[in-house]
Structures are given as structure tokens and as C-alpha cells.
Amino acid sequence: MFVVLLIALAATGGLYAAFAPADEAQADTTAQSLAIEEGEALYRVGCSSCHGRSGEGGSDGPSLVGVGPAAVHFQVGTGRMPLQNPGAQAPEKPRAYTQAEIDQLAAYIGSLGPGPAVPEESAYDPANGDAARGGELFRTNCSQCHNFTGQGGALTNGKYAPGLDNVEPIYIYEAMLTGPQNMPSFPDTVLPEQEKRDIIAWLNEVNTSESANPGGFTLGGFGPVSEGLFAWTFGIGALVALTVWIGARSAKARKS
């Protein structure tokens, strides 16, 4: 289920990466205002009940003025928005909008007030990042919530920092840039673009399904708890099974 979701995300993200630059190249003012109009229509139907008629926020959702297109791209692109059930926080889920619709929504929200724009691919391409430096930055800024290798961790009262495995680099970049939900933001003044790229390079090195785990199966990467569980189940289980074999009486000859 989760895997399917990841594949879907990866595929759509890939599609987006392929088409987005072309769109932007051709973007002119008319196309832009058209997108804003379309976005506003989508917003009215899907978002306004919580975030207010024109993004001013309400009791059920924060103001979206000035959050910028990047926040929309992240929140709607990872399926966190629209929210399905009120809870401690909005979980990642299959997205409800097409990429074109998300772009229109982003354009509309972007028109409400200045905010971070959706990054160019060059901003988050892990190939141009320094993984070792990124590891240091990750341990300074990120691992306290997301764990050493981005397996995720718990926050207060049921909130959590989600696992970062196989998350599209663009979403990682946008999350740092915009600080979705309870995650603090890391604006470029605090964590410049190159440093963000380094962090993405580190995650790309240690936390994708292609990452090397030289020692073998990682047990989820949760450290001593999962190692202890393994020792108490498979480890001691295997050894006790052997004691039973050694201690069992050998088969006797049947008297018939």
C-alpha cells in the first residue's frame, strides 16, 4: 500500500519534473492570470471551507496569505491537503489533484501575497550536493526530529516528524523552505540553497530504497530498540530452538 503510494508519488513527481520547466519557459502574463483564475475556482471548492474565502484563514485552517506557491506544491502535492480527518497532523496520502490543478492552486495562493516559489530543479538536484556536508547539516538541523537517516520520529501529543525515505527531493526542499505544519521553516537566510541541496544529497545517499546498507537488513533504522527486539525474537528464538533440539530425547526404535 505504502509502496504503491511511493511509486505513484515518484511517477507523478517525475512527470512534473519533465514538464514543469517547459511550462515556466512559456509562461506569460495571460497564461499566469488564467492559471490564477482557475486556481481560485479550485480553491473555492476544495480549500475555502477551512482557509477562508480568499485565503485569510479561519478557525479550521491557517491563513495562506504569503505562504507562497512552494507550500501549496508541497501540501497538495504530497496529499497532505486537502485534509481528510482532523487529527494531530495531516498525514501524507495519495494526492487529490492533478499536477496541473496543483500548479493552478499554487499560482492562486502565490497571487495572495509574496512567498517562496516552487524551486527549480537545479536547486534540489542531489547530484550537485555534498553528502558529507549535508550529513553534518542534517544532524544539526533535522535529525533531532527525523532521526539519523530520516526514518521519522515522534513529537508531542501524537504529532510526528514523518519518515523521509524515498521522498522526492523537491518536496524535501519545499518542506525546509516553507516549514509545513509544525515543522519549523529553514529559509535561505538560515539554510542557503546550497546547504539544502547538501542535505538532500545526504538523504539521497542514506535513505532511499537504492541506498547501500553494507551491514545488511536495517531493521527499520530505529537503532537499539529494533535491534533489541530482533535479539529477543529471532536471535534468542533461534538459539532456544537449538537448545530444544540438543536437549530432546533422540528417537527411539519402535517396538512392533
Binding site: G135, E136, R139, T140, S143, Q144, C145, H146, N147, F148, T149, Q151, G153, A154, A161, V206, N213, P214, G215, G216, F217, T218, L219, G221, F222, G223, P224, V225, E227, F230
Partner: peptide, 21 residues
């Protein structure tokens, strides 16, 4: 077959850094 304590991804100790779990 099973990793234990993969120190290479944990990073060196620094008193101002931390990881959850």
C-alpha cells in the same frame, strides 16, 4: 545479514547535535 549499530550513518558525536530515537 542484519545490521547492528550502523555508526557510519549516525555521524560523529557533537554535544550540540542529536537524533530522535
Amino acid at each position: 545479514t542484519v545490521t547492528i549499530n550502523p555508526v557510519w550513518v549516525l555521524g560523529p558525536y557533537r554535544p550540540d547535535q542529536i537524533s530522535t530515537n
